[in-house]
């Protein structure tokens, strides 16, 4: 039981990360990761939808005929997206305007329907919820990392516009780390997202490779030599 949760968290955060390994949901990932605030906002929204839809799908899984399960899942996901969208509209209006079309587009995020189909429709609700939480955290972490890199290189700041997400007090979170006369616009523009994500994936693979090399270096017990020819 315990080890299953450990596997779930490891999969969601690292081994089977939706953004770095499955490469799902790249459209919002690349489009709104211009600043940390936008990335965090969309990351949290996706996380909430993922947890909610996973739990609901898991609860209704025994009442849904197999033939129409996909439309049902989509309706469930769309419901949660609508909830999140209306909530953001009410409480974080600035961020809602900044993210624009990409909030309703969470419906089409393949990572969510992928988890509903692959995991939630086969497991009970608390496991499915935990899986949604971990997958959502993994997705949000990549989103925030990419947003931080792009914001830092493109503007020299971090948490610019955090008050849109967290309220007035958060405007003091904005840090100007580097002062550019001419920022590297490429990082803010769409190509910067692709190049940044490429570097993140390369970094993950490099770390994995290092880990594997370390494991491979561990001494292997010498096998007994067996003589197979010329046995007299």
């Amino acid at each position: 039981m315990n080890s299953e949760y450990r596997t779930l968290s490891k999969d969601g955060l690292w081994e089977n990360n939706p953004a770095l390994v499955q490469l799902l949901g790249l459209c919002p990932l690349l489009a709104v990761s211009g600043t940390v605030t936008n990335a965090l906002g969309l990351g949290i929204a996706t996380l909430l939808v993922l947890v909610g839809s996973n739990i609901t799908v898991s609860l209704v899984r025994n009442f849904v005929p197999n033939e129409i399960r996909i439309p049902v899942f989509v309706i469930v996901i769309a419901t949660f997206v609508t909830l999140v969208e209306l909530t953001m509209n009410a409480f974080t209006y600035g961020l809602y305007m900044a993210l624009g079309i990409f909030i309703p587009l969470i419906v089409t995020n393949c990572a969510i329907i992928g988890r509903a189909e692959a995991y939630a429709s086969k497991n009970n609700w608390y496991k499915a919820g935990f899986d949604g939480l971990m997958m959502g955290l993994g997705f949000a972490a990549v989103l925030v990392a990419l947003g931080a890199i792009r914001e830092l290189i493109g503007q020299g700041t971090l948490f610019d516009g955090a008050e849109l997400l967290l309220g007035e007090w958060a405007s003091s979170l904005r840090i100007q780390l580097i002062e550019f006369d001419y920022p590297l616009l490429l990082a803010i523009l769409p190509p910067g997202a692709f190049i940044g994500l490429g570097f993140l994936i390369a970094g993950k693979n490099w770390l994995d490779e290092k880990k594997r090399e370390k494991l491979a270096k561990a001494p292997v017990e010498k096998a007994q030599r067996a003589r197979v020819t010329h046995v007299s």
Partner: peptide, 10 residues
């Protein structure tokens, strides 16, 4: 192209 996109003025 990287330069042209990033620093159009210069």
């Amino acid at each position: 192209v990287v330069l042209l996109i990033s620093f159009p003025v210069q």
